[in-house]
Amino acid sequence: MARAALVGLVPALLAVAWATAGEGPTERLEIPPPPFTEGIFPCSSCHADLKVNRTRRPLTAMHDDIQLRHDEQHRWCLDCHDATDRDSLHLASGERIPFEQSYLLCGQCHGEKLRDWRAGVHGRRTGSWNGQKSYLLCAHCHNPHQPRFRSLAPKPAPRRPERPKETIGGLP
């Protein structure tokens, strides 16, 4: 739904840089902008005037379309979304990060996936096998609120081999 509206929206690529752990030069990675629902960002355009309510509760006035299926027993909005700077996320340490670096947030629990993603092994890469590669953020494929990869309709099966009629000659 929300993400479906965004499929066509992968325009200007945004470059994010980080230093690869330990040795190696700074690697530049092309990452498209985070997959926001249309018109929802910046969050501060609404939240700036709202009083912060840190109580854990079902949302009714707004965002009621979000069904949390991601360790919902233990998490809720403000574990990842920052309450003071509404346009940011924050790590468990309290350090604020922009939505463009949300992979750092995911990597707090899914460390081995983050490691594989950085190596180019988890997730889809496009571009050059020997040069500039384009990465996707975790959230491009996994809805952070319901991260399980959704099922897809398969493309048609191959045709079964068929004996052309004219070559059957001789058979009744």
């Binding site: 190596a119 180019g120 092994v121 988890h122 889809r124 096998w129 897809l152």
Partner: peptide, 25 residues
């Protein structure tokens, strides 16, 4: 460039590269 099947795979299951490059996927 990457092969077409690598770029289209929606789950990113397909990987391609140079065996002689120690930094390759």
């Amino acid at each position: 460039r990457y092969p077409a099947c690598v770029e289209v795979c929606p789950v990113g299951a397909r990987k391609f590269g140079n065996l002689l490059d120690p930094a390759s996927e």
